[in-house]
């Protein structure tokens, strides 16, 4: 009886929404910039998940192509963000986002 239940697209979309909410919480609660970056990755993954679910539901491959481009942009974003974090952390030892007022002119 239970084995006959097949997960529908709605289930995947709800899962993606919950994952997005957890990522939002992480960005707002955590103060370590690295962990905030990881939470942004969680949100990106949630969006990717809903893209793939809808692409497979609608039979349209363009959703998966969009996810491919999102992956590329996410990789570039992580590289640049971690470079900025490394260059900031090199001149000050603290690891919380509260102290990062250095970008002021």
């Amino acid at each position: 009886m239970i084995a006959a239940v097949v997960p529908t697209t709605t289930w995947y979309l709800v899962l993606a929404a919950v994952l997005f909410g957890i990522g939002t919480l992480g960005v707002m609660v955590r103060r370590n910039p690295l962990v905030m970056f990881m939470s942004i990755e969680l949100m990106l993954n949630a969006v990717n998940l809903s893209f793939v679910a809808l692409a497979s539901r609608l039979g349209d491959i363009n959703g998966q192509v969009v996810v491919f481009f999102v992956l590329v942009v996410a990789a570039a974003e992580v590289v640049v963000g971690l470079g900025i974090i490394v260059s900031i952390m090199r001149r000050r030892a603290s690891v919380t986002a509260d102290d990062l007022a250095d970008l002021r002119g």
């Binding site: 899962l15 990881m38 990755e41 679910a53 497979s56 998966q64 996810v67 992956l71 590289v79 971690l82």
Partner: peptide
Amino acid sequence: TFVALQAHFLAAVQVIVYAGAIVVLFLFV
């Protein structure tokens, strides 16, 4: 989940790029 949704290419890319490259970059930093 990508494999379950028949997105095999994206599942492979997800493992290689995210778990293989991005997380390793995080750990390095």
